[in-house]
Amino acid sequence: MKKNDFYLIIGILIATAIVVIFSNIITRKDTAGAVAVVTIDGSEYGRFPLDRDVTERIEHSDGAYNVLSIHDGICEITEASCRDQICVHHMSVQYNGQTIVCLPNKLVVTIENSNNDDIDGATH
């Protein structure tokens, strides 16, 4: 083996390592962790990371509101103007694909990029 062979191998590996490290840094940014994605009538309102405690009052155009609370890695609706209050009673969510729905306000909270709880669907 020539010296050049070693340089070649090291070169290939360094190039691969650089690409791998960078691509991981880039993709980690948006898969950093679980987020609660809030949509209103189909359009996205905001994304809230589950690892940051926050209480967000979501105002709707007709004066209605939902209060989203994230704490201890779980997400729930603590208050809402809707009359049936199903979203407030709804269990807190934290696993991939879980949703909280407020039909009257057309609001959907969906968990993304979280762990799977190995459940594909749930009856409501």
């Binding site: 083996m1 020539k2 050049n4 062979d5 070649l8 191998i9 290939i12």
Partner: peptide, 8 residues
């Protein structure tokens, strides 16, 4: 390169 480098 030697034959090894080519093969790599």
């Amino acid at each position: 390169f030697s034959i090894t480098g080519v093969s790599v």
